[in-house]
């Protein structure tokens, strides 16, 4: 799928963030085009999760600017809530609401944030549950599902908000190995539909087949970015080479 390289949906400029004295994000500049798929990798503690969490303001940045679909992220609560309805996030530990059924997990956002009618929200929810191949479980509670199933529900929950951008924060790292594929398959099918996504992951096979661009971070900085072919076959930076040699075996 072609993407318009000039139609930026996310614009991050000279962005910095500190945790106390620790400089967790250092001068981040990143533009994401509409429909672009970006995989972010790097050693743990490199700031990659923090970076995508800044995009829906689960973390605040302290310098520079982040602009999401025309909305500048500031302390303005109304703007933050607006951005969050456009940007969905899938977490490493799923974070489903254990006291609600699968269906209720999916309809909560549409009903309360999008002000949809219950009936309407349930129809859409069932559609997305079918899409992630889990419609039979609608009446169950999250605790009754396997990890892979829970993560697919979490993806369906994000989709129900009908977001323009999806953020994935290590979506497969908490899963048992035999469940990684079922979750990646769902994410790949989303990719085929042209969703804008930023995925923090260590699944390099996935990155090769899905990403338009791979970003390597270390020490809070973007060290290298390239298309997947060149990134994996011909890394430029020494740190990237070292990282790749350690995870590709």
């Amino acid at each position: 799928m072609d993407i318009n390289k000039n139609d930026f949906i996310i614009k991050i400029k000279d962005m910095h963030k500190w945790y106390g004295e620790f400089h967790v994000l250092n001068n981040i500049n990143l533009n994401v085009s509409r429909g672009e798929r970006i995989v972010i990798c790097g050693p743990s503690g490199s700031g990659k999760s923090t970076l995508i969490r800044c995009i829906n303001r689960l973390e605040e940045h302290q310098r520079g600017s982040i602009n999401v679909d025309g909305i500048e992220l500031t302390d303005n609560l109304k703007n933050i809530e607006k951005v969050r309805t456009e940007v969905s996030m899938v977490f490493q530990h799923f974070n489903l609401f254990p006291h609600l059924t699968i269906l209720e997990n999916l309809t909560l956002g549409p009903i309360w944030v999008r002000k949809m009618s219950k009936k309407n929200a349930e129809e859409i929810a069932m559609e997305y549950l079918a899409k992630v191949q889990i419609a039979e479980q609608a009446k169950k509670f999250p605790g009754q599902l396997s990890g892979g199933q829970q993560q697919r529900v979490a993806i369906a929950r994000s989709l129900c908000m009908q977001p323009r951008i999806m953020l994935f924060d290590e979506p497969t790292s908490a899963l048992d190995p035999e469940m990684v594929k079922e979750v990646l398959d769902v994410i790949i099918s989303l990719a085929e539909e042209g969703m804008t996504m930023l995925v923090v992951t260590h699944e390099m096979g996935f990155a090769k087949s899905v990403a338009h661009r791979v970003i390597f971070m270390d020490g809070g900085m973007i060290i290298e970015e390239n298309n997947p072919e060149d990134f994996f076959s011909n890394p430029q930076n020494e740190r990237t080479k070292l990282f790749l040699s350690q995870i590709l075996y």
């Binding site: 977490f91 530990h93 974070n95 609401f97 909560l108 309360w112 944030v113 929950r157 908000m161």
Partner: peptide, 13 residues
């Protein structure tokens, strides 16, 4: 903490 984050990232006030 994940419960707060999931609710917030959904846009709930």
């Amino acid at each position: 903490k994940g419960q707060y984050e999931a609710a917030e990232s959904m846009g709930l006030n």
